[in-house]
Amino acid sequence: MDLPTLISILQSGLALGVLYALMAFGLAIVWTTLGIFNFAHGAFIAAGAYLAWQFGNAAAFGLGYWAGAVLAVAAMFVIGAVVQLLLVRPFERHRDIVLLTVITTLAGATIITNLLNVIWGPRMKQIEPALDGEIVFGLVHMRSQEAVMIAVVAVTLFALGWFLLRTPLGRSMRAVAQNREAAQLMGLDVRLLYALTFGLAAAVAGLAGVFIGSIRFMSPTMGDDPLQKALVVVILGGVARFTSSVYAAFAVGIIEAFSTYFVGLYWTPAVLFGLMILVLIVKPEGLFGRRQRSV
């Protein structure tokens, strides 16, 4: 393996890593805060991509890439909150909430995916990238769109970290995640915080969808594969902190890039899932985790 190959593997790992970080964020925050696993997360990714296409692309409303992305993310926030209201909240106080919401969010995923299919059809689409061309920096050749994505995701992750750590609303979300009862006794609006958390997760998933839709192709089932990867990321990283799934996302991205080069595309999911099972056996709380649920 020569240097340019190594660089391009790392580069592709980085691009995957930022996408996985975005996707895992939503899964992790919903898991820690609401205590449920959201199987509709992949469908959120696809919905975000289609909305951005609809708002942004010249063939549709033609508002441009950025306006499309912003509107899609905002719409996904609302959609996420509505999905929580319809599919999760009714079972909030049920003792089998985890299992029930597995079913309801799976149902939600199916409904959203089929809605996308009905509205936009099964044909592959692509969001026109914000920037064309390539950036060349020494040995690094990168598509401009990928560079844009990495920059925007970096800013987004820092903003999310700042939000969770520094703002009263973010701190309240973490508080509810860590001790629901104590939060209720303090008078925090737990239901509102649950809906906001779900909305935030959906919005970030939507952003991931926008990027996937502009560097790859989009189809109504485009979220299925990223959902699997995000699951691997969350399990590998653990959910002790907001940052643990971010680290794990980059680790998985790089591993996937290397594995695709050396093992091949078809066996890469097997490599990742094998790794995940290994981590579950050796360190079930995740590589960066503690035996505790919190953000």
Binding site: A182, L185, G187
Partner: peptide, 29 residues
């Protein structure tokens, strides 16, 4: 009507300052 629960672990990952910062906002809307 504020209830200080028995032996509550509060919010394990929040610092004292963070916990105090959300306490008043919570109850007084």
């Amino acid at each position: 009507l504020i209830h200080v629960a028995q032996g509550s672990p509060l919010f394990p990952e929040l610092t004292v300052a963070e916990t105090l910062s959300i306490a008043p906002a919570a109850a007084r809307g």
